[in-house]
């Protein structure tokens, strides 16, 4: 490929990345050191925003909640995703139909899915799940105001929306596993579990690492699911980092862009720390390949 063609083909991506990623990132870092009001030039305040964020217990609670949610959801989606992908992989002509149905929860916008999900537990709007559980247990669960029930429905909803994507990636990985190797393992006497543990999982380790990476990044950015599912998120301590940033930087009457930017920068650092093992593992695998 000639140099001119290379430049012509890559320039749009470079411009888009510069305009939509680097410029906002630069402004976020800049504002994190300033006191900023909408439409006005910021005033340099040094590390004041970072100090405010790090000494605010609400930020700590948001980090603990978000990291906890990420760990739980990632583990569950990877395990369930693997299980469902294995089942789907064994299907014949029904596979496209089943896949199509499974992908519904992934293509529905998060906030729409979360509203519908919240109605399952809200007796004001039918509350089917609430009704059935009430019948079974004889008591009412306060899904929106009690800490752990609320965390449970948040986690269930995030898993519900994330699972198809993880399952799809793992399914792609499963389809690449050599049939000959599997047959050889079977001839050597490996059972179903043994084949999964010693053959399939090591073969798709790269795909699983990538699924963990994407899943971690997505769950760390949980925001819109919480609007309908956790209306009392702040008081309960079920506020995600992204919701906290929104509440600090954009909510009517708050609008502290400097503090919001500082929390955003800290969040980027947290995401990098959490993703480090996945990124390292993927890079190592790429080197070995």
């Amino acid at each position: 490929m000639r140099r001119r063609e290379f430049v012509a083909l890559t320039l749009p991506s470079v411009l888009v990345m510069f305009g939509f990623m680097l410029v906002p990132l630069y402004r976020t870092v800049e504002w994190s050191f300033e006191r900023v009001s909408y439409g006005q030039a910021g005033t340099f305040v040094g590390l004041q925003n970072y100090l405010a964020a790090l000494t605010e217990p609400r930020f700590g609670r948001a980090v603990v909640f978000t990291v906890g949610l990420t760990l739980v959801v990632t583990v569950v989606t990877i395990c369930l995703g693997y299980l469902i992908a294995t089942l789907v992989n064994g299907l014949g002509r029904m596979r496209p139909l089943v896949l199509g149905i499974l992908l519904v929860s992934y293509v529905i916008p998060h906030v729409v899915g979360a509203v519908s999900f919240s109605w399952l537990f809200d007796s004001n709007f039918g509350g089917v799940a609430n009704f059935l559980l009430g019948r079974l247990t004889g008591g009412d669960v306060l899904w929106f105001t009690d800490l752990w029930p609320n965390r449970l429905i948040i986690a269930l909803n995030v898993i519900w929306s994330m699972l198809p994507f993880v399952m799809l990636m793992i399914l792609a990985g499963l389809q690449g596993v050599s049939r000959e190797t599997l047959e050889a393992a079977q001839i050597d006497g490996a059972g179903t579990l043994g084949r999964h543990w010693h053959v399939i999982i090591p073969s798709i380790r790269g795909v699983l690492g990538f699924a963990v990476l994407i899943s971690t990044m997505d769950v760390l950015r949980t925001f819109d699911n919480l609007i309908p599912l956790a209306p009392q998120a702040v008081g309960l301590g079920n506020e995600s980092i992204m919701l906290y940033i929104y509440n600090v930087a954009f909510r009517e009457g708050a609008e502290d862009l400097g503090l919001g930017s500082a929390i955003s920068v800290l969040t980027i650092l947290i995401i990098l720390v959490l993703l480090y093992p996945s990124i390292r593992s993927i890079l190592k695998e790429a080197k070995e390949a």
Partner: peptide, 8 residues
């Protein structure tokens, strides 16, 4: 309702 603080 016990969940009144979630009612708009």
């Amino acid at each position: 309702d016990p969940q009144v603080t979630t009612f708009d």
